[in-house]
Design a protein around this nucleic acid. Structure first.
Lengths: 120, 120
DNA sequence: ATAATGATTAGAGTAAACTCTAAGTCAAGA
DNA sequence: TCTTGACTTAGAGTTTACTCTAATCATTAT
């Protein structure tokens, strides 16, 4: 069981952010005798998953939606599955966009290098 | 030569956004006799480039920086080149992140499908 | 015993990137 | 002539995702 400060350090995010995610019902830690938040390994794994989703541009609203489905129980698995499949599509699209931009930049960079070498 | 409304339609962005980019000195169109903005094909190509940079998560501040270098003239080509190379690195990183997330999602999706097929 | 550390809360403040409003000008078509 | 529609401006408002503040409480270190 970890305190909020420890979890913040482990995940590389701030305690503020962890409390914000709780306010948004993305993570619900347990409380110890004195009312402090406690996170177990399941909480941490869930947060690592949330961070992965965030890194791939899933908005907080959608992460919230997914979290609420998880809380609702097993009868939401189909809906969760389609949400994840939708996001997988979005990731594919992002990769395509990035690859196109990468090619364009490569082209521009070569043009710049060529220009510079001919000038100097 | 195109009006702001035409350019907005061509690029799929709003006239508000085009004026905002101008306020940020990212694009400086010319003006016609009655003071209206006019965009030529060079302006449009530049805006398409800006949109590509945006799609790959370059912040407005950095796009602004690049635009200012272009305005300053040929003696900034080296600096522009390194800015673009830096961004190309960031794109590579983004692709790696997305691929990792994609694999993780594939794994999760398979697990969900497995669970559902065994349950039904 | 006291000071430092780290936790708590409600709620205010911030940054980025738009997005919209209000009040106005101007040219073309019915 | 009137109206419609596109344009102009300065500046206010919105959304997202934090980020911080202030006041307070509990535990640990000297």
């Amino acid at each position: 069981m970890h305190t909020i400060g420890e979890v913040a350090k482990i995940l590389g995010i701030s305690t503020h952010t962890l409390r914000y995610y709780e306010k948004e019902k993305i993570i619900i830690p347990v409380r110890d005798a004195s009312g402090d938040r406690r996170y177990n390994d399941t909480h941490i794994k869930w947060l690592q998953f949330v961070i992965k989703l965030k890194e791939t541009q899933m908005p907080i609203a959608k992460i919230k939606k997914y979290a609420s489905l998880v809380l609702k129980g097993e009868h939401t698995t189909l809906e969760r599955l389609s949400l994840l499949e939708e996001h997988k599509d979005s990731i594919k699209k992002q990769i395509r966009t990035l690859k196109a931009a990468d090619e364009m930049l490569e082209y521009k960079i070569v043009a710049y290098k060529d220009f510079i070498s001919k000038r100097d």
